[in-house]
Design a protein around this nucleic acid. Structure first.
Lengths: 216, 216
DNA sequence: TGATAATTTGACCGGTTGGTAAAACATTAC
DNA sequence: GTAATGTTTTACCAACCGGTCAAATTATCA
């Protein structure tokens, strides 16, 4: 019998798991490069190597695929921020947060672009996640940073804008990759650009947040 | 007679100028929020308050509209970088570059998102501009920054990544506006966030680039 | 005013898109 | 093996999309 996908909540076949995995992988490819509205089910089906109705057997709508993808990716995307440790030393925590975010931009650019597309277009599908789990996590970590500033471990600064700055500078290398490589030219567009970026950003943030006598 | 748009290169009617203006304004709205593939001519026509065939009388294809928009906007978008002055003092030049870029993010977010969408999706329509005029301009200004570092006016750093960092942190407030406001919460989402951002970023970049004894 | 050119509109077209129906095919459990 | 269930395919549909066409309307100017 042909049961609608949503009705089979209990046991999942081996084939189901494999195919859903395959589809989400293909969907990530397509959504990341064309955005939600710019992507077609046919495209995703082709990348996944199956027919469109077959794909629709596993995910009944384009929205369902997108949502499943967002749900799966959002969680891992926030891991680096979760690891941000209140007990560690400020400089090394910030330094390794930058490094982890840069590694993600290098190793998982599609995930970064998926969110970038979504947010750029007004976050129509993930607004709740932004104002809920994401905000809570950021609030928590902002409090940590604020306490570091208060106890004189780093320069006084707005912790939210610090986090925004780390996000934007690191994700830039995933989201605006074409521009980065276009500007750097072919010679400097190898993987070395991530190490150069890491060096620069660590210097910028670490010494930008250092306490100095004349500081405000 | 119905002359194709491309054939009337000479005199332009008053109506032509007005309508083309109107259309590009509407197109900016739509392209900026949905990207090229996600936008429809009907949408743009509706925003512009005219029928689709009427719109197509002025721009014969969707591509033509997009290209006209890109051409018009790219130039003004690079103005802040052009103003970057080799003769000025490094600190005040960098500071005012940041301020100008932030003002553009605040006052012209649609223009920022237009490019962000384009670049995110692989810059299919503006690759030439990236590797041509943009790269040249950046190369020129990077040389200025490099000379400042060499003569000990600012800390040694990779000038390209410095420029990327300024671009990403400032444009973040236009491109990721929904996220920024979502995280800041309703209370802090007023226009004041741009001043907070300006304060933070100026502090970060200025003191991050200051020469210090222990510096590398 | 009337002729001429510029603008606007409604009807339409072929291709694409998200999605469906039903039957054919494969797999699993007994 | 076979019956029940799970998977895949073929054919299809209605809505939408980019774009055309010819006729209707409006502006310009002698």
């Amino acid at each position: 019998m042909v049961l609608p996908r949503a009705a089979r909540t209990q046991r999942r076949t081996r084939i189901q798991e494999e195919k859903e995995e395959l589809i989400l992988e293909a969907a990530l490819d397509v959504f990341a490069t064309h955005g939600f509205r710019g992507s077609t089910i046919d495209q995703i089906a082709e990348v996944a190597g199956m027919s469109k109705p077959n794909l629709l057997y596993y995910f009944r709508t384009k929205e369902a695929m997108h949502r499943a993808l967002i749900d799966r990716v959002l969680d891992s995307w926030l891991d680096p921020l979760r690891e941000f440790d209140a007990e560690g030393s400020p400089v090394s925590e910030i330094r390794s947060y930058i490094r982890r975010k840069l590694e993600m931009a290098r190793d998982f650019p599609r995930e970064s672009r998926l969110f970038a597309n979504e947010i750029l277009q007004g976050a129509p599908h993930i607004e709740d996640e932004l104002k809920g789990p994401l905000k809570s996590l950021v609030d928590e970590k902002a409090e940590v940073i604020r306490s570091w500033a208060k106890t004189g471990k780093i320069a006084k600064c707005d912790p939210y804008h610090l986090i925004f700055a780390i996000w934007s500078t690191t994700q830039h290398y995933a989201d605006f990759d074409v521009q980065v490589r276009g500007v750097l030219g072919d010679e400097r567009s190898g993987e070395g650009r991530f190490e150069d970026a890491a060096r620069f950003l660590e210097q910028l943030f670490v010494s930008g947040l250092e306490i100095r006598d004349g500081g405000a």
